[in-house]
């Protein structure tokens, strides 16, 4: 839907409100980003590059990519399943289910890490069994993946559920009545309708997966070069008085955030007609 222009507000009021809003955003959003970049490049691009190409930094970047590559597809598959189930059918307890899907959003990251330690730690419920079979979950990559999956769990589903609900069920029902199978209906009717929402959900899910700190910190064990993700490596460098290094890795994560947002805006811009069309349903 095209945005309409307000006719009622006098120009001074309009500019005052714009100024206040932009001022607020500048102080609370833009300045932190600028601070990260300024610190990262404080000693020039050379120092920035040296900090990023160190062995431990590379290991942290690699681990972060591996974790995101496992966590994001899992949550995409789940998000599609869950939003389909919630939007396309009526069943008792749906409201509770939606609340439960939202739950990881509001659980403190520290708790999100703690629960895995309670479950899989040496003193945890399954700890003795895991140790007897020489399986490592917490303080190793599986634990980091689990904590990340937990934290990024709702992103895709939350993006898709309202979108699918808004679009209703008429098209799918029509497709079914016309003889299409469930899977075919999903691929050729539902998915095209929600693909932009899905993409946006994936982008945010990915950004959060790569940037999670609190939960991963609890289960990581902080072994240099092995179980440190990028955000944890930022903290380590910061604690080693290597401020350029810390902010260099941080700037990479900040750039990731900016690229994520730019990609989202770009997609919306290029496909605005299609998006407007799918909204009209």
């Amino acid at each position: 839907m095209a945005r309409r222009i307000a006719t009622g507000d006098p120009t001074p009021v309009r500019w005052l409100l714009i100024t206040v809003a932009l001022g607020f955003l500048a102080v609370f959003l833009v300045l932190p980003l600028v601070a990260v970049l300024a610190e990262a490049f404080a000693k020039g691009v050379g120092a920035w590059w040296v900090a990023l190409s160190g062995e431990d930094s590379r290991a942290a970047i690699r681990l972060t990519l591996i974790v995101a590559a496992i966590a994001v597809p899992l949550n995409v598959a789940f998000g599609l399943c869950a939003s389909w189930a919630v939007a396309k059918y009526d069943f008792p307890g749906k409201s509770l289910l939606v609340s439960l899907i939202d739950l990881p959003f509001s659980v403190s990251p520290v708790i999100s890490g703690l629960v895995w330690v309670l479950l899989f730690g040496a003193q945890g419920l399954l700890g003795p069994w895991l140790q007897a079979h020489d399986l490592k979950v917490v303080f190793a990559i599986p634990g980091i993946v689990l904590a990340t999956v937990f934290v990024t769990f709702p992103f895709v589903a939350r993006e898709l559920i309202p979108l699918m609900e808004e679009q209703g069920r008429d098209e799918e029902e029509a497709a079914i009545v016309l003889g299409a199978g469930g899977l075919r209906t999903f691929w050729s009717v539902t998915l095209p309708n929600v693909k932009w929402g899905l993409l946006y959900g994936v982008l945010l899910c990915n950004a959060r997966a790569m940037g999670e700190f609190g939960a991963v910190s609890v289960v990581s064990g902080h072994i240099r070069g092995l179980t440190n993700t990028m955000p944890l490596h930022v903290e380590i460098l910061y604690n080693e008085y290597d401020f350029v290094g810390a902010f260099a890795v941080a700037s990479l994560l900040a750039l990731l955030a900016v690229v994520t947002l730019a990609a989202k805006t770009g997609l919306e811009w290029w496909h605005r007609d299609e998006i407007a069309a799918s909204r009209r349903h």
């Binding site: 496992i70 598959a77 599609l80 399943c81 399986l135 190793a140 599986p142 993946v145 469930g182 899977l183």
Partner: peptide, 23 residues
């Protein structure tokens, strides 16, 4: 959606199988 259970199983398998790698 048939592929998603496989993916889930695969990923869960991976999550459990990874630790042996460092020995």
């Amino acid at each position: 959606m048939v592929w998603s259970p496989k993916i889930v199983a695969l990923a869960v398998g991976m999550a459990i199988a990874v630790p042996g790698a460092q020995a």
